[in-house]
Design a protein around this nucleic acid. Structure first.
Lengths: 185, 185
DNA sequence: ACTGTAGCGGACTGTCAGTCCGCTTTTTGG
DNA sequence: CCAAAAAGCGGACTGACAGTCCGCTACAGT
């Protein structure tokens, strides 16, 4: 049996961390002490529940990513047409997510060693992309990494003042070139 | 007049930092105290000369990047054939550089805010790529960022156990698709 | 209710980036 | 060549933060 207070606390911590990351401008403006205080728990509780800072960030990121997938799936066309459309859809969704979760996404990038890749949602996206690309020539694995790199959170951050349409057009062009046209096999 | 000891010290610091980053496995295994000790100067000297940690890292990175350009320019074909070849050449050179300067490159990524982009050598590479791409359709700027993202140091790190040829083939494929073939205009 | 234990809190530790100021070295100009 | 001024130096000091530790609390099973 899992103790009731444990789950309650973990949720409080995630919620508190979410609030603080949303409010913060720079990722490391959010300290663990601050999260503990905001959540109304002791610091030890956080570390017991999430291991370390990176663990907390990852957990929160996963939670949000999962919610985002659910949400966008509802709003979106049930099925996309061409593979290029599907890839574009995936990438622009990721872009949007990272824009909406700016500070959190940046934190993940900087947390620990190679952490942006050790991450369920990255694995997911990479897997989907690889599948979509593997029908169209070699190096699907590497190309999938490249496409995901194009929506890296700090690139999103770097280009944050560009109008949405410009980014969308860029992503579209990239995808159209990388994913060969339907019958170009 | 610039004091002689100042330049001497700055050089000592850069050399020391270089040695330590080369030896370290993880970027933040290199502390400023360690650099000061290795260089045989006081800590204040480093901060006076480079501003902060990010400044030191950037300075060292620039120094190495400049040296690398000089070195590879000597070893390379005087001029590359197609634009795709030129782009491929640039990207694989960057990949090689980041592999050779693993820890340093990773440090730069994590140093301060958006620092991988606030960087002379990034600007250079981005400029060159944009020029090469702009003959072939729109969004050259964004595409240049994307291509550079494909050789981000932590992706290099993430794929460090893949054989060179696999990476090279991946980069080649990416470039061939993103840079339209000569007469495909 | 009673007891064993999982979980809690927050004081404590170690580490590190960055500051500060009295002291030393270099430059300048007489 | 020498003294005064300026520039730079070093390393003790500060503040902040991640992560640990252990005596205490409150939950769950009986």
């Amino acid at each position: 049996m899992v103790r009731a207070d444990k789950t309650r606390n973990q949720e409080a911590v995630l919620a508190a961390a979410g609030r603080l990351f949303d409010a913060a401008h720079d990722p490391d403006d959010v300290s663990m002490d601050a999260v503990a205080a905001e959540a109304g728990v002791g610091k030890g509780t956080i570390f017991r529940g999430f291991g370390d800072r990176a663990g907390l960030i990852r957990a929160l990121y996963e939670q949000r990513a999962a919610a985002f997938v659910v949400q966008t799936r509802r709003e979106s066309p049930a099925h996309q047409g061409s593979p290029a459309d599907a890839v574009y859809f995936l990438l622009s969704r990721l872009w949007r997510f990272k824009r909406q979760n700016r500070t959190l996404a940046l934190s993940l990038d900087r947390a620990g060693h190679a952490s942006p890749y050790r991450n369920e949602s990255y694995e997911n996206a990479h897997g989907q992309l690889t599948a979509l690309l593997s029908h169209h020539g070699e190096q699907a694995d590497f190309l999938a990494h490249s496409l995901l790199a194009a929506v890296r959170s700090d690139l999103v951050e770097h280009l944050h003042d560009r109008p949405d349409e410009e980014i969308a057009a860029g992503v579209r062009t990239l995808v159209d070139r990388v994913v060969p046209a339907e019958r170009a096999r």
